[in-house]
Write a protein that binds this DNA or RNA. Sequence first.
DNA 1: ATAAGTAATTAGGTGACCCTAATTATTAGA
DNA 2: TCTAATAATTAGGGTCACCTAATTACTTAT
Lengths: 218, 218
Amino acid sequence: MTPSLTEENYLKAIYHLGKMSGEKVSVKSISNALNINPASVIDMLKRLTDKKLIHYDKSTGARLTDKGFKTAINIVRKHRLWEVFLQEKLGYNWDEVHDMAEQLEHIKSADLADRLDKYLGYPEYDPHGDPIPKANGQEPAHRRITLADAEPGKSYSVVGVKDTSPDFLQYVQRLQLGIGVKVKVVEKIGFDGSVVLQVSKGEKTTVSQKFSENIMVA
Amino acid sequence: MTPSLTEENYLKAIYHLGKMSGEKVSVKSISNALNINPASVIDMLKRLTDKKLIHYDKSTGARLTDKGFKTAINIVRKHRLWEVFLQEKLGYNWDEVHDMAEQLEHIKSADLADRLDKYLGYPEYDPHGDPIPKANGQEPAHRRITLADAEPGKSYSVVGVKDTSPDFLQYVQRLQLGIGVKVKVVEKIGFDGSVVLQVSKGEKTTVSQKFSENIMVA
DNA sequence: ATAAGTAATTAGGTGACCCTAATTATTAGA
DNA sequence: TCTAATAATTAGGGTCACCTAATTACTTAT
């Protein structure tokens, strides 16, 4: 049976949580990510287990099976392709595409993603700088660090963000930190981890550690 | 409250049924159109009535309220715009776009349809020859008759189809009856209503009355 | 006018997904 | 180590959107 929209969202969440922190994907973390009550999450984990899309064990958390992984990576692929479409073809901004892509990623069709991929010229990254998985499920390698881990004195290119909340994305835009924008790390303040930046030959700005941890650079 | 996906599908069905036959939209007709049990249809008609999206009365059938009409026409608009996109931009065939558009029409966004419309160059008709409602809800007028009502001896242009089942659409393609294709009505058989056609200077073919009732020409 | 068919409706379920409240495990701090 | 906090789970519901079976209301043909 093809997974329901809701099941797809759980699989995607488990995929993201599993890769972002090597740690176990707990009921709590899923509950937080999807804003769903822990009791309901347990419900769903049972169903996903029955459908052999995940393995679940209290102590090790949830892990995607092969089948579950294929489903999840496919959704991620579609999400990111649609994001590229919305930005490149329809002219949306960086911070406007997420919600629509969240819906578009669930469109079912044998080859829509592949056609879209071709139409867009086989893009490697989405507007947030995240790599777009290939049709075969392979995710292009990408070596990225956050601004928090960047070396003072060096220059980097912005390749993406971690946080995707409107608040954050709007602040990012105000700082002119688009994809591909050059950023020089002037200094790191030891006291609180703040980072002093120079954005594309402009003035110096200081951002918090929390902020810097959410900007991906390469 | 914004209507659920299911509610949207009911509204769309009521819209189509209401316009195709000036007759009343009965429980039975909705049940047939959506392949849903009459009892369930009643359920839903109650809910749609509560939400003031339709008026329902056994003797007059279901009718869309202003609010319901706006919702329905918007879905139709999105459906047809997406069909154009799938054919024009992604290279799908006439008979492949329906199922995907059926899903895409439910994507929620303040201005996605308008951006798509602009991107596609404000098309007037979708690949089936059906008119695309404008953003303000106005449907471009179009004078079309079915092949069954066409006059023997005259030539017409195919502008669309009524049926959208794969079986039908594939047969249409086999007969080379694309949008804009010229068709000469050679003769009508009185006995069973069959129609003898000549498709774009090709050979003569005979089609059933049932078939001819589903081909729109102008 | 009445019987037979068809349409509409009611009653009583079901499964998917969600919730709250209560309970049991687990983990961490004094 | 024992207690307090946190996480996981169970029990019991709720809503949406569907179903079957039974009943009631129309229509139509004789």
